[in-house]
């Protein structure tokens, strides 16, 4: 268990809803859910989740902390926004899903092998280097996410797509050597540093 996770357990004890309200982006909306089920019924991924949104919200209120935070459900959200469009209480469900996923990741409780989680972290690491996504490197790192052999296979299968993208100038082999970035890279560093500092301060508060 990470230090922060330990600190949160101690801080909120039995009140997981309170913890979510305080720490999860848009988490204070969870209490507004009336359990109508329209979000769950609207989700294109519905049959494949362990817990659709409305069930997650009920579990939060019921204090099922471990089950919620280690669930892979919120990682399944495709941001289609069907649920937000239909929720009679105007809950920003999509955003809550992402908030929950992020919080679980920060606490180190998110399932390690969850592919969306892995992709999100890779995407982030790739993006912060230059302020622009390097499609080539991101693509390659994704192909090899599940090991070398698997990676070669995936890369071969995706080759026509890659060639097409190159033709359309959406992808350049030169990207492998450096690649494009934002003009003001110092400014970008400063923004990221500040964000990191705010985040670290938050975490430090609970780890002290």
């Amino acid at each position: 268990m990470s230090n922060m996770n330990q600190a949160m357990v101690e801080k909120y004890r039995n009140d997981f809803l309170k913890e979510v309200k305080a720490n999860v982006e848009e988490g204070d909306w969870v209490q507004m859910c009336m359990q109508c089920g329209v979000c769950s019924g609207s989700c294109p991924f519905g049959p494949y989740w362990d817990h659709p949104p409305q069930e997650l919200f009920m579990m939060i209120r019921a204090g099922k902390r471990e089950e919620v935070l280690s669930s892979n459900s919120m990682w399944m959200c495709t941001s289609c926004y069907n649920c937000i469009a239909r929720c009679p209480r105007e809950l920003p469900i999509t955003h809550i899903m992402h908030g929950l996923a992020h919080y679980a990741d920060r606490l180190g409780l998110a399932p390690k092998e969850q592919p969306t989680r892995k992709f999100a972290n890779r995407f982030w690491d790739n993006l912060v280097k230059k302020g622009r996504v390097n499609e080539l490197k991101l693509g390659v790192s994704l192909y090899f996410m599940n090991g070398f052999i698997e990676g070669i296979k995936t890369a071969m299968a995706a080759a026509p797509l890659g060639m097409g993208m190159m033709k359309a100038k959406r992808l350049s082999p030169m990207e492998y050597f450096g690649g494009h970035g934002v003009k003001d890279s110092k400014g970008l560093d400063a923004i990221l540093k500040k964000a990191r500092q705010i985040e670290d301060e938050k975490i430090a508060k609970y780890n002290s």
């Binding site: 359990q35 109508c36 089920g37 329209v38 769950s40 019924g41 519905g46 049959p47 817990h51 659709p52 409305q54 069930e55």
Partner: peptide, 10 residues
């Protein structure tokens, strides 16, 4: 289409 909230079946 929907989800029966008693049991969460679609």
């Amino acid at each position: 289409h929907g989800v029966n909230t008693e049991g969460y079946e679609r």
